[in-house]
Design a protein around this nucleic acid. Structure first.
Lengths: 68, 68
DNA sequence: TACAAATGCAAAGCATGCATTGCATTTTTG
DNA sequence: CAAAAATGCAATGCATGCTTTGCATTTGTA
């Protein structure tokens, strides 16, 4: 899943590790989210969005989620 | 995690199975979310929220997510 | 240039989301 | 009341999120 995490990190001048610390995960987790290795859990998505003062929908790109 | 899924289901007069079908999971998954057995994935949370025309934050209750 | 900080990336293992099956109980409806 | 639909709930297994460790490469800075 695409995210605006790299963009938001740069705007706030944060390293992957600083963001990781801020939301309580490891740097590797942030890396994996940024390069689309896997999708964040709901609570992690919430923490990241809230950290940047945004909603989950503003940070994560759901355009590839299939319709039912 | 608490959710408004039971409430929203009743408003829309949907059974657990109908909602499950609509968002592409099994009835057991909906049951588990409703009784707090586990937390939805981000994509499932999105599908459920979108199905009801709401945002993720409007459907799921993040008040128990710790601050960092 | 030299060093430090930041990032990329991979493997193994644990934790959790979800499917599948199955059955018992409750609720609805004819 | 009788049958069907809806819900509760448990066990097993697979898929995926996340951690941990470690090292190589790139980027920033004195």
């Amino acid at each position: 899943m695409n995210t605006r995490i790299p963009e938001l990190r740069k705007q706030h001048k944060l390293s992957q590790e600083e963001l990781a610390l801020a939301v309580g995960v490891t740097r590797q987790t942030i890396t994996s989210l940024e390069c689309g290795k896997y999708t964040a859990s709901l609570t992690l998505a919430y923490k990241i969005a809230k950290y940047f003062g945004l909603t989950i929908e503003e940070v994560f790109d759901f355009s590839d989620v299939e319709e039912f």
